[in-house]
């Protein structure tokens, strides 16, 4: 829809903190993440340029096409400031392509594809196959109260080597689809496309608000 303006609404999930969450809006399912943040009563803004990174308390890197977001981040010169912000502790949530962009190593990357880093993991792009292999599932996330989490996997990646990161989500067959390392959380799936707001609520409370305490 027409450009969203900053909404300054206190978040019930982060008790008293007036947080503003940036959504990297170069390409991908930006709007769907904004709708989840609206549901949670959290202010948000779109991030396309270095100046947009000022004043945000956390950043969501949406799903989309990781190689396109990579290229656009260089064209709009937001790549380097973003890498610095992540290194300085900016809380980040990457979903699907966002997970790939946070990973240190990518299997199946296109020629010249770069990532921002933040999670020292190896991910495989399109690990389930092409678009026809996309699916919805319920997955185990012990950190999230209220039972299995609804998730859409769309040409999703899989984490093949977690190295030093903590596993936060797995499929029933044991495949690793969510990791955390400090300020960075990456999940291979889209909760925001299937009416699931608990992953965002957890991230806001545990990672974003946690960084402010």
């Amino acid at each position: 829809m027409f450009p969203t303006s900053l909404r300054h609404i206190a978040s019930p999930s982060v008790a008293g903190n007036q947080l503003t969450i940036g959504v990297l809006a170069l390409q991908g399912d930006v709007r769907e993440h904004e709708l989840v943040l609206d549901d949670l009563g959290v202010a948000h803004c779109q991030v396309r340029s270095p100046v947009d990174l000022k004043g945000i308390d956390g950043l969501i890197i949406p799903g989309g096409e990781s190689s396109v977001i990579d290229k656009l981040s260089r064209i709009f010169e937001v790549r380097e400031p973003l890498i610095s912000a992540i290194a300085e502790g900016l809380p980040v949530l990457g979903t699907c392509a966002g997970l790939i962009l946070l990973s240190s190593t990518v299997i199946g990357a296109i020629e010249g594809q770069q990532t921002f880093g933040g999670l020292d993991v190896e991910v495989e792009r399109n690990a389930f196959g092409g678009q026809l292999e996309s699916f919805e599932s319920s997955i185990e996330m012990p950190l999230i109260p209220g039972g299995p989490v609804n998730a859409a996997f769309i040409r999703a990646p899989i984490i093949r080597d977690v190295r030093g990161c903590s596993i936060i989500a797995t499929l029933p067959n044991g495949e690793i689809v969510g990791v955390r390392s400090g300020n960075c959380v990456g999940i291979a799936f889209h909760p925001e496309l299937v009416g699931e707001s608990r992953v965002h609520a957890w991230w806001l409370d545990a990672v974003v608000a946690g960084a402010q305490r």
Binding site: P3, L26, Q27, Q46, R48, L72, I75, F76
Partner: peptide
């Protein structure tokens, strides 16, 4: 056109 589509509010 790619740039304008990305920065469509600017």
């Amino acid at each position: 056109i790619v740039k304008a589509t990305t920065a469509f509010t600017d």
